[in-house]
Design a protein around this nucleic acid. Structure first.
Length: 472
RNA sequence: GCUCCCAUCGUCUAGAGGCCCAGGACACAGCCCUCUCAAGGCUGGUACGAGGGUUCGAAUCCCUCUGGGAGCGCCA
């Protein structure tokens, strides 16, 4: 019994989860879900120096937050695991021993310096920098002697020359590599740990991964990994290489592109669905250009719709999807945003009034303050608008409010008292009430704004008007 | 240096020889709606990197150039 599709996400906990990584995770997740298959999380923490449990925990938390749930992983072990590479040393050791016994791999005693010199020499000669094979054919005696000298050794995979390695890339189509271009590569570091190429290839096969979508920076790794799988008698997965996600100017995505890390976006209040709607369309096309639910994202995912050119991350597009997400968000979610920025118990009424203007939690804070808080004295354009309305305007407004008149009545009184209408009426009123030129409907705003606050602001406006009138 | 990949509006992209003097979305501008602004609706401007072929016809096929990206590690 074979499972049709198993994909995986295999991050190494050496840094914050990046939008580029997340997109890779997302595509694998979507592909598995679309196919009704499995999605696996494997933690690649063989580099013990740089990996940390805290980073792993953060990474797991962010994936969960995004809703990219997995069927097997370090927290959900099954027979194919363990899913943390640091726990798989014995498995790798067995494979190393076997390859070495079969002479598919050999110890290499070259030092970093020697390798570097050779690399430069080849580069200078216009040749690709590739391992020269210095240690490939050492006799048993020579090896024993070097070991006896206590010289550290890596284990190199022996690549037979003159072989063509061909396969079909899920995204790029037919691929062909010549083994001569590969060079013997390191599969075990001098400290005994497994190198990425090796553990990654072995684990994909051992964990039953059928399909891998990964960044195009892995293209050249693929032939090597196929060689490893073959030498181990394992079935390699199909590979698809995605164009990279880049930032402004086509440079690799970085902090300069503003919050390229998931943690930061989450902190700013971006919603998972917004991020998913954006990422799903970067290097991949959905038939629908509108908002997609999680189910829609899954149903519309298609390998054939994957592009091959690098995709740019654009902040404006993120904001667009965030606005969409915020407009669709549960009132409860928006009330969370409002909590602490509005008087307790007023969250629901507040959200009902301003929700069209809420895009991020920061907006809830802004409007919470503008509706319930203390405003400084109006200045600039606001002061000009307020003073320009004249004292009769404010007197009428105060009078109406004191009588607890409803909004329509208030407006009618103002019109009657001043003859103003349209912008001439609303601009000063809005300036007095919120000191902002934009915002939610005044009617709705006045409904949530405590009468005392509204009165105070109108009084302030009247005082300001009077002041500027007596001091021409 | 060598190998591989890519190239349509500012950005995401549609386009697999005539349906394209290039379509959509975001952003931008204007208009409508509304008692203001936002939200919503509508309209508009902006792109096939360059040069050569092939063809009756090319954004689409081929070549060269240019530009961008990736790789060539005891990093993943």
């Amino acid at each position: 019994m074979s499972i049709p599709v198993t994909t995986r996400f295999a991050p190494s906990p050496t840094g914050a989860l990046h939008l580029g990584n997340v997109r890779t995770a997302l595509f694998n997740w979507l592909y598995a879900r679309r196919a009704g298959g499995r999605f696996v999380l494997r933690i690649e923490d063989t580099d013990r120096e740089r990996s940390s449990a805290a980073l792993e925990a953060a990474l797991v938390a962010e994936l969960r937050w995004l809703g990219l749930e997995w069927d097997a992983g370090p927290d959900r072990e099954d027979a194919r695991g363990p899913y943390r590479q640091s726990a798989r040393a014995a498995i790798y050791a067995g494979a190393f021993a076997r390859l070495e016994a079969e002479d598919r791999a050999y110890p290499c005693f070259c030092t970093a310096l020697e390798l570097d010199v050779e690399r430069r020499r080849r580069l200078a000669a216009g040749l690709p920098p590739r391992y020269a094979g210095t240690c490939a054919n050492l006799g048993a005696a020579e090896r024993a002697q070097r070991v006896a000298e206590g010289r550290p050794a890596t284990l190199r995979f022996r690549v037979t020359t003159g072989e063509a390695i061909e396969y079909e890339d899920l995204v790029r189509g037919p691929q062909r590599f010549v083994s001569d271009d590969l060079g013997d590569f390191v599969i075990r570091r001098a400290d005994g740990s497994a190198a990425f190429l090796f553990s990654n290839a072995l684990d994909d096969a051992a964990m039953g991964v059928s399909d891998v979508l990964r960044g195009e920076d892995h293209v050249a790794n693929t032939p090597r990994q196929r060689l490893i799988a073959r030498a181990l008698g394992l079935d390699p997965p199909r590979y698809g290489h995605l164009p990279l996600l880049v930032g402004e100017g086509g440079a690799p995505l970085s902090k300069r592109d503003g919050s390229a890390s998931v943690a930061e976006l989450r902190e700013q209040g971006y919603l998972p669905e917004a991020i998913l709607n954006l990422l799903g369309r970067l290097g991949h096309r959905y038939a629908s250009e509108g908002w997609l639910t999680r189910e829609g994202l899954i149903a519309g995912f298609d390998l054939a719709a994957l592009g091959r050119a690098p995709a740019h991350f654009d902040r404006a597009q993120l904001r667009h999807w965030q606005r969409e997400a915020a407009h669709r968000a549960d009132a409860a979610k928006l009330e969370d945003w409002a909590r602490g920025h509005v008087p307790p118990g007023r969250e629901a009424a507040f959200v009902a009034a301003v929700r069209a203007n809420l895009e991020l939690p920061a907006d809830a804070a802004t409007w919470g303050h503008l509706v319930f808080g203390e405003l400084p004295c109006a200045g600039g354009e606001n002061a000009r608008l307020i003073a320009g309305a004249g004292t009769a305007f404010w007197d009428a407004a105060l009078e109406a409010l004191a009588e607890d008149a409803d909004y329509a009545t208030l407006i009618a009184r103002l019109k009657a008292a001043t003859g103003r209408g349209g912008a001439a009426l609303f601009k000063p009123l809005r300036a007095a009430l919120t000191q902002r030129a934009d915002g939610p409907e005044l009617a709705a705003l006045l409904k949530v704004m405590p009468p005392a606050v509204a009165m105070a602001r109108l009084n302030a406006a009247r005082a300001l008007t009077e002041n500027s009138a007596t001091r021409p």
